[in-house]
């Protein structure tokens, strides 16, 4: 039963991704990507990565969707059609750009799958990530930082400067987006 609950959202994600790629209407593709982000957040929650799930829902389903709609409102809604197709010439089914792009995608996916082959199993207690510093965080972070949750302790105390830098980056990005999207008053 639990395996089915794990597998079905992943199939849902594949269906969403294929639809978003194949759809000609870009607004529809944006909506499908929003659904993708929501279900991806469920998958993160199933993996017990609650903070990642939260980021996925707010950034993926919220901010990214709004930004894409804003970009569509400044451009056009349909996908780019080359000029010769508009003149009614016969559309080539396998053009050189499509075939080469497909090969690049397949090669990249094969390389990434090959890279995951020698990774440890999911939740393996003897994985290198669980042997090195994780034990120290679990045992000592309560004394050293006083934060009950050790993910929060790592983010806010051990890597405090890193988090400060990230916050600066996000703040700068937010200001840039506000500057780009602000209402331009036409006299």
């Amino acid at each position: 039963m639990m395996e089915v609950i794990y597998i079905l959202p992943l199939l849902f994600l594949v269906a969403c991704a294929l639809t978003a790629v194949l759809m000609k209407d870009l607004l529809g593709a944006t909506i499908i990507l929003g659904a993708y982000s929501l279900i991806m957040a469920v998958v993160w929650t199933m993996l017990n990565a609650v903070d990642v799930a939260f980021t996925e829902a707010s950034v993926g389903a919220g901010i990214t969707t709004v930004l894409m709609v804003a970009a569509l409102s400044r451009t056009v809604r349909g996908e780019y059609e080359p000029a010769h197709e508009a003149r009614g010439w016969k559309r080539k089914r396998f053009s050189i750009t499509k075939v080469s792009g497909f090969f690049v995608v397949v090669l990249t996916a094969a390389a990434m799958i090959y890279g995951t082959m020698d990774m440890p199993d999911f939740g393996d207690p003897n994985a290198p990530a669980n042997l090195h510093v994780a034990r120290r965080y679990i045992e000592e972070s309560r004394h050293e930082t006083g934060v009950p949750n050790f993910v929060t302790a790592v983010l806010a105390s051990y890597r405090g400067y890193d988090t400060l830098g990230e916050t600066t980056v996000i703040f700068t990005a937010g200001m840039s987006v506000i500057l780009l999207l602000r209402r331009i008053r036409r006299e």
Binding site: L27, G34, F54, A57, T65, V66, L72, S73
Partner: peptide
């Protein structure tokens, strides 16, 4: 509960774009 709060942002953006053709 927090998800339920986030949920409607995209919907509002889509409907505003649909009705006014722009977001600002």
């Amino acid at each position: 509960l927090a998800y339920a709060l986030i949920n409607f942002i995209a919907t509002i953006a889509f409907l505003k774009y649909r009705e006014m053709g722009r977001l600002d």
